[in-house]
Every structure is written in C-alpha cells, then in structure tokens.
Design a protein around this nucleic acid. Structure first.
Length: 467
RNA sequence: GGUGGUAUAGCCAAGCGGUAAGGCGAUGGUCUGCAAAACCGUUAUCACGGGUUCGAUUCCCGUUACCACCUCCA
C-alpha cells in the first residue's frame, strides 16, 4: 500500500488515485529567465523519481508541467538585453531540455508555456469575476482571499497572521488597488510597451499563479491526484492556486500535495536571489558524470534538504560506482548454464524490500539499502566462481530495474573513447603483463595515471577510467 | 513574532516503545606479482533536561541549536 506525505494534512496518507490505475500529476515548472540551477534540478529529479516509481508500480501517469514565460524577471531581462520576452523564454526553454536530458528526466506528458493559454486564462479570470471571487481594479483583477474557504491551509497559517505580513510589505500604491491586503493579482494591468494581451479589462498580462490553475484544470481535470513543487511554493503560489481553482470549479483541486526540500549550500538555501547557485548548465560542462548528479539528488529523500558541495557529489559518485562495478563484474563473469533457486529467492526478497520502502512515502534510503544488498549478492556470487546464467541475469535485471526507478541508467556502458596515446600505452602494458614484466607494467600504469586515466587489473583484463 | 521542519557514529543517512539498516571513510584480515575491485570482521547508546512505561533513540512537556516559509524563489 502506497503512502504519501500530504503537505495539506502534514500526515502520511494512503494513496488512492481518482481513477484506479491512472494518476494525474502536475508539477510547477521553472520561470525561464535563466538557466536552471542545481536546486531546480533537484525538484525535477525528485518528482521524476516519484513518477518513475508510480510507473514501476504499474500506474499510467499523466504528468503535466509548465514554463512560466511571462513575468517581471523575463521582462526585465528582455529589456536589459534589448530583445523580446519570447527570445529570452525560448532560449532558456531550449536550455532546460538540454540540461535535464543528461539527468535522465522524462519529459512531461504535456508541457505548455503560460503564453500559450492566454485565452483560457482570460476565461478563467472572467468566471471568477462572475462568481464574485474576483474584482477589477484599474485594469487589474484581484482575487478576494477572504471569500475563499480554508485559505492558508497549505501554509498552516491563519488569515490574521498572513495579513500582518501582507500589509507590512505592500506599498500604498498596491494597497490602493486592493480591497484587502491579502488579495492577490489574477491579471495585471500593463501600460508599458512590453509583452501584453488585450483583455476585457484592458491590456495586461496574467498574474503568477493563474497559469498553473488553468493548465492543471485544462489538461488534467478539475481534481487531480498529485500536485508537486518546492516547499517554498506552498505559500503563496500553491495556496493561491488552490483558492482560485476551487473557487472556479467548486471542486477540490488536489488530493495530495507533495513538496520537495531544498538544496542547501553551507546550510543555506540555494536560490537565485541569494546568488549562491550553480547552474546545471555549468555543472554539466565541468563534471563528466551526470548520473552521479542524479544519484546525489535522488538518493536523498525528497523532503530532506541536500547540502550540496563538490565533496558530496564525489561521495555520490563513489557510491554509484560501487553499484556500477558490481553490475559490470557480474555481467562479465563466466556463466554456467543453470539456476540457483536460493539466489533467486534472495533477489526477490530484496525486490520486495525495495517496494516496501518506496511505498512508504518514497523512502529511498531503505530502497537503496535493498539495492546494496543486491550488489553484495552479485559480488559474492561472482567470488563463488560458480555463476549460473539464469540467476545472474535475474540479479542484473533487478539491479538495473530498481536503480532505473531512481533514474540511473547506463550501468554497464560508461565506455569512453580513449585517446590514441592511452590506447597505445595500454597495449604495451598488456604485453608487459603477459611477459610478467611487472616493473614495466607498473611504470606504464604510472604514466597512464599521469595522463589522467586510472588503470586497474581484473580477471577480465585492464580496466580504465578517466579521473 | 507566527508557522513548518531538522538534531542518530569522522561524513551521508534509515529506524521511531524492547538495548541502533545501508553507503562513504578509517582500520584488521583473505584474495592478488603490486595496486584496484571484491569478500569477512571492527568502528554509535541516538542535542540537553524532565515525565509516562517493566522498558524510550522511538510517546509527552520543556530547553537549546540550525534551516525554511510568512516578498520573487524548486
């Protein structure tokens, strides 16, 4: 039985999809005014792993996400660079796909830009006005927060506390536009010569939260199973989404709210505003093992913070290497025809442990422990010198499938093209080894090492990897 | 100030009423020409103070520290 932690109730709840066997899932996507950073990637990876596990459990998952391609930051960026907002957005949308592909993130079933649903947004907002949940004020449209039931539920705050914060931060101009400091914008009046659309309230552009409500209801229906995002989105973004969506449809918006924890740097949140971020773009260009990045992000429980540093990344790589090494060893072992029932039994025991762990709100730590048990089993099996093909294939298949749920692929490949010079030195060393010329063999190993490659010997000959 | 979260070995991190999974590191051993890999072993009383209980890391109360949200942020 799958249980998930719901931010709305702060409890683990049994997961029951609206339609048996099918899951509707919406995850808030990035505002595309810059490259995504490691923290953004963590969120994508966390929900990708959740999605993969649901797929592994046999569910059909309809996964929708968005690109926010109209907002203040994009407009500012466009003005700074003297190009259109669309040029900025398109550039970083392209970069998003380039950056997430090496991290093995499955593209969303549907991924739409905010600017592609403007008519739907206008219709949605008009309906809120008709229903009395919103009002126009000088070309802008605002949502009446006090009219919504259980507003603040996700943030676990009451209206009075929220109001203290709201009235304190708003300037007089903004306050004058609103009936109540708590109200938020559904549609913004836009007098400047920047990206904007005609609307019943004059020229303007959508507020921040409306696009997600529109896309979620448009592509997935009035009520969806899972809505995800970073925990910082719980308030105000998801709170506002929930209020406007439920006001519009009269139905519960989301059954399970899932939020991921942050990536920290020196125990502080990595964020664009703090400036302490590393973009995935630059990380990928300076680090040659994207699967290790994925492993670091995915092997930590999604709600826990990750303290990001190069040493943490290195540790993740070493851990992942243990799995890869075992996988390759077993794959390259000498098989005998046959089957070892006791091995098969141990494999299914660990598979069951994996499922049990993941069913408990995606407990990846315990799930990973099951994978490491399989790794030890694989290694011991090879050491026994009596490997039966059927059992070996079963171990390999399970390791690949389970680590695949974490989005780690290519366990056996990791083959890189070697420079000619290295190839030559390896050949020379092989000859030396056949002649048991250990001195020359060691010398060549040192030489290869000094050129940036580490060579080690196994029963299958020399193994090389780039340092 | 309000709200939510976290505090477990050198590090990462499970467990959450019956004397602590897993990984990294360290260390001893086996194997190997050496090294690597692998395998076997060693490596913690769970922030602090009370309370409940036959028994608490696990429940309750309090304290302390750190993080986050309350403004854009995954």
């Amino acid at each position: 039985m799958l249980k998930v932690f719901n931010t709305a109730t702060l409890k683990k709840e049994e997961f029951k999809p609206i339609v048996p066997g099918k899951i509707t899932m919406y995850v808030c996507g990035p505002t595309v005014y810059n490259y995504i950073h490691v923290g953004n990637a963590r969120s994508s990876i966390a929900f990708d792993t959740i999605r993969r596990y649901l797929l592994y459990r046999g569910y059909d998952v309809n996964f929708v996400s968005n690109f926010t391609d109209v907002d203040d930051k994009i407009i500012n960026r466009a003005q700074e660079e003297g190009v259109s907002e669309n040029a900025i957005a398109s550039k970083y949308i392209k970069a998003f796909y380039e950056d997430t592909k090496p991290l093995n993130i499955i593209p969303a079933t549907t991924r739409t830009r905010a600017t592609e649903v403007i008519p739907d947004i206008i219709e949605f907002v008009s309906d809120l006005i008709d229903k009395g949940y919103a009002y126009e004020s000088q070309g802008g449209v605002y949502f009446r927060v006090r009219k919504a039931g259980n507003y603040g539920l996700l943030a676990h705050e009451n209206l009075e506390d929220l109001e203290v914060g709201a009235s304190g931060r708003l300037d007089d101009g903004a306050l004058a536009l609103k009936e109540d400091p708590l109200d938020f914008a559904l549609w913004k009046n836009e007098p400047r010569q920047v990206i904007k659309w005609d609307s019943p309230w004059g020229q303007g552009r959508p507020g921040w939260h409306i696009e997600c409500s529109v896309m979620s209801t448009k592509y997935l229906g009035y009520t969806i199973d899972i809505h995800g995002g970073g925990i910082d989105l719980a308030f105000p973004h998801h709170t506002d989404e929930m209020a406007q969506s439920e006001a519009h449809t009269g139905k519960q918006f989301v059954h399970y709210w899932l939020h991921n924890g942050f990536v920290n740097v020196n125990n502080e949140k990595m964020s664009k505003s703090l400036g302490n971020f590393t973009t995935v773009h630059e990380l990928l260009s300076s680090y040659d093992d994207p699967m290790a990045i994925r492993f670091l992000m995915t092997a930590t429980h999604y709600r826990r913070p990750i303290n990001y540093s190069s040493s943490e990344l290195e540790r993740a790589r070493v851990e992942l290497d243990r799995i890869r090494t075992a996988y390759r060893r077993l794959k390259n072992a000498d098989f005998k025809i046959g089957d070892d029932p006791q091995i098969d039994q141990l494999v299914s025991k660990q598979t069951a442990a994996f499922v049990e762990a993941m069913d408990d709100d995606f407990n990846v730590a315990n799930a990973l422990a099951a994978i490491f048990e399989l790794v030890r089993l694989a290694n011991s099996y090879v050491d026994s010198g009596d490997v039966k093909d059927k059992s070996a294939q079963e171990i390999l298949r399970q390791i690949a499938e389970l680590i695949g749920v974490f989005g780690i692929s290519g366990l056996e490949t990791k083959k890189e093209s070697l420079p000619k010079k290295i190839e030559l030195l390896l050949k020379k060393r092989e000859t030396a080894r056949i002649n048991k010329n250990w001195q020359q063999s060691d010398q060549l190993r040192d030489e290869i090492f000094s050129l940036g490659y580490k060579v080690s010997d196994s029963s299958n000959g020399q193994q090389v990897r780039k340092i």
